[in-house]
Amino acid sequence: MTVWDRPEPPARPVPLDRERIVAAAVALADEGGLAEVSLRKVAARLNAGPMRLYGFLATKEELFDLMVDEVKAEILPGAEEPPGDWREALRGIAHRTRRTALRHPWLADLLGGRPALGPNGLAVTEATLAALDGLADADTVLRATETVSAYTTGAIRREIAGLRAERDTGLTDREWQRASGSHVTRLLATGRFPALARFVHEAAEVDAETSFTTGLEWVLDAVAARLGEQPG
């Protein structure tokens, strides 16, 4: 039985329900990351005894599942958004996933892995598959959505890791590059890294959103090419 199937216990003596528990856990994670989330700390924030939470949750992993599902509501397309083609639908899901992870950086640590079974997670999966449904056979659609998801997750994790490094060191990327510039210059001068030297000197520097968008469009191009190979 999943956490979503399990009935909730009576809300007494302190009014308590899964919605309040998850909201408190998300707030703790937003403030300090997943390391700050424990049943004890969540209970303290709710002025309840830690044992009370075990009536709603069996493990901390269940709490993480509920937290992920809570914020996945932010990835769903809004009712006011007009329907578009498959490419626009997948693009929208990817960009909303990135924006959600930037608001809740801990989400990057929990993306991927086993399928999300909560109502919002299932709704995101439904919207993703529905975008390509009917355009190819089931296996091709699954591989296509997995590919887009793998790119999205990897790019988000890399960006979040960079933001954490900036927070931990107190240096922006540009400041870090200046601080390490003499070391890199010496290494490139040895001639041992000619390809790296060319890209360091010639490649344009772009911001994280531009990098994410460019890579996503290339992945969508690849999906479009694969769909074009399907028999009509």
Rank of each mutant, 00 (worst) to 15 (best):
L107C: 07
A108V: 01
F56M: 13
I93N: 12
D109S: 13
V71C: 06
R99A: 15
H104W: 11
V26W: 04
D109Q: 08
A23I: 06
H104F: 11
L132R: 01
R99W: 13
A24T: 05
E74Y: 01
G121T: 03
A123K: 08
P83Y: 04
G112W: 07
V22A: 11
G78I: 00
V42H: 07
R143Y: 15
R98P: 01
R52F: 11
L90H: 11
T153E: 10
D133H: 14
K72H: 15
H95M: 14
S149L: 11
R96F: 08
G92E: 03
P83Q: 04
E70V: 00
M51E: 15
R45I: 00
A43M: 10
G49N: 13
R87T: 02
D30Q: 09
A150I: 00
A150Y: 13
P105S: 11
D65H: 13
E74L: 13
A101C: 15
E126C: 02
L135H: 10
A144I: 01
A108R: 06
G33D: 05
V42W: 12
A35K: 13
R40G: 04
R45D: 09
D137W: 05
G92L: 14
T153Q: 13
A155T: 01
A44C: 01
A73E: 11
L57R: 04
D30F: 04
K72M: 15
D69A: 05
E80P: 03
L135N: 06
G121L: 02
P82M: 05
R96C: 00
G118E: 04
R96V: 05
R87S: 05
V124M: 06
G49V: 12
I156N: 06
A127E: 14
V141F: 02
G32Q: 12
I93K: 09
R96Y: 04
P115C: 09
A127L: 01
R52Y: 11
A116S: 13
R114T: 02
L142I: 05
L63K: 02
K72W: 15
R96K: 08
D85P: 08
E74S: 10
L76V: 04
S38M: 08
L34G: 09
E88V: 08
L117G: 01
L39M: 15
A138L: 14
V68A: 08
A89R: 10
A101M: 07
H95V: 13
F56S: 12
S38G: 08
D30Y: 02
H95L: 15
G78N: 09
V71N: 07
F64G: 03
K72F: 15
R143H: 14
H95P: 00
G33R: 06
V141I: 13
T147E: 05
E81H: 12
R40F: 07
A27T: 13
A131F: 08
D69E: 02
T152Y: 12
R91K: 10
L122P: 05
G154W: 10
T59K: 12
E61I: 03
